[in-house]
Structures are given as C-alpha cells and as structure tokens.
C-alpha cells in the first residue's frame, strides 16, 4: 500500500502575539508546528502500513524551513518526505495545484490522507480540492478508517449523521482529530529520521505560471475586551456579587 500524507506547517496559534494598538496578530517569529490533525493522518497511515506493508510519503507545500517539521513525521514513521518550496502568499488553489503535481511526480499511490482542516485557518479545502484535481473519490471527516487490500471503508462524522462509505483505490481521505492518538517518536526514531530522504522541488519546476485566485488583503484584529471582574475572596460574598452583577446586566433568565 502506497500512502501519501499531506501535512502543513502552521503557526502555533496559542503562541501568537498581538499588536497592542491595532490588535492585529503578529505572525513573525511565532513558533511553527505541523498542524495537529495532519499528525492524526500520519498516525493512521502508520497503522495501515503496519497492516499491509508499503510506503508512506509525507508531502508538504510550504516555506524552506518546513523541512525541519517534515523530519518529525519521518521520525513518527514516514519513509520519505517531499517538500515543495513555495512563496508565502499562496492560496488554496495554488497549494492544491502544487500538491496534485507533486502527487503525480511521486507516482503510484493507493491512498492520500489529510487532516480534515489545518488548525490555523480551518478551511478544510485542501483535501477535497486535491481529490477533485486528481479526479478520485474523497471521504471526508473520517473518524474510523478500515483499509483492506482492494478497498477502504470509513466512518464519516457528517454532523447529524455518521456515514459509512467505501471506496476502491486510489482514494483521498481526510481524518478528524478524534480518529486516533498520534504517537510520540522515540529518541532512536528521531535520530533515525535524519537518514531518511526529503526531496525538494521549487513551485516553478512543478507548475508554470499559477497565480492566486483569492488574495488575502489584510488581517483585521479582533478585540476581546472583557470586563475581567474576578471575585476571589469570601465565596458567599463572591456569589452574591456575581448574581447581582448578572441581574444588572439583564442576563438572568426571562
């Protein structure tokens, strides 16, 4: 079974700082990580490889420094990495186009696994876009995947319903965070990852002249101004003060 796992390097949102006057996020200098749910996709790939054998390739479109992050996934259990180095301001259309071309370069594959969405922007576009470009079935929001030799079955969390779908190969599956618990690589695995290959391509060698169809013009800050009235002394007094405040705010029932 040849599996491709698409993984994105994202800023760690919980470490983001904000400009005090404009409230805009400051993205420079924020630590980077592999988007959490992509690690779930990686974990699922390892489980499938454990059962059927084969090869796992991690595929990333991102800045040159994403190479370091790819090593984390090689340590988890991927066999090979592919990094398509692209400029900062690319949109989903460009990313998916580059991924599709890179997939064609990788060659034979049975399954592509992605996270349902990346934790920074949470659009969930890449999986379905890529499946569309490759003209293969997409099984989204999988919370359970059972891969057999000739077909794959998955339980999809579609909100109100759980839909069990089956597809032949090749197929693209996006997984939820609930599907599994990604493993932490051992020190040996981390050291071993250094010897695994990472192939790099530049965006231009894969696609000529691809332009963004959606441009990010600006990021507006969102102020979370709250009253921050915290009662921490005598409990009975605190409760009374709180209830009085809530009554004044007019939010108590009715």
């Amino acid at each position: 079974m040849n599996i491709i796992v698409c993984a994105k390097q994202v800023v760690d949102v919980s470490e983001m700082k904000f400009d005090s006057s404009t409230k805009k996020p400051i993205l420079q200098g924020v630590s980077q990580k592999i988007s959490d749910i992509d690690k779930n996709a990686m974990e699922e790939a390892i489980k499938i490889k454990d059962k059927h054998g084969g090869k796992i390739t991690v595929l990333t479109v991102g800045p040159a420094n994403a190479k370091e992050r790819i090593k984390e996934l090689l340590a988890m259990g991927a066999d090979e990495g592919v990094l398509v180095v692209a400029l900062d301001n690319i949109d989903y259309h460009m990313t998916a186009t580059l991924l599709a071309e890179a997939v064609k370069k990788i060659g034979e594959y049975d399954m592509i696994l992605c996270g349902e969405a990346s934790v920074d922007l949470f659009s969930g576009q890449i999986g379905p876009r890529l499946a569309g470009l490759l003209k293969i079935p997409q099984i989204t929001y999988a919370m359970k995947v059972t891969a057999e030799k000739n077909s794959v079955t998955a339980e999809q969390n579609m909100g109100k319903n759980v839909v069990t779908s089956e597809s032949t190969y090749p197929a693209l599956i996006t997984v939820t965070k609930e599907i599994n618990e990604p493993r932490l690589p051992s020190l040996m695995q981390i050291l071993g990852a250094a010897n695994k290959p990472i192939n790099e391509y530049t965006a231009e060698t894969l696609v000529k002249d691809v332009k963004p169809v959606v441009e990010t013009i600006d990021l507006k800050g969102v102020s979370m101004e709250r009253k921050n009235v915290i009662y921490k002394n005598d409990l009975d007094e605190s409760v009374e003060q709180l209830v009085n405040s809530l009554a004044k705010e007019g939010v108590l029932g009715g």
Binding site: V13, D120, K211, E215, K220
Partner: peptide, 13 residues
C-alpha cells in the same frame, strides 16, 4: 482565522 483571533479580508481575483 487563527481560532478567532483575526479576520482575514479576502479578495477574489
């Protein structure tokens, strides 16, 4: 975007 910390203004080209 960013877990509710910002609003992206996007333009279709």
């Amino acid at each position: 975007v960013y877990s509710g910390n910002a609003i992206a203004i996007l333009k279709f080209n």
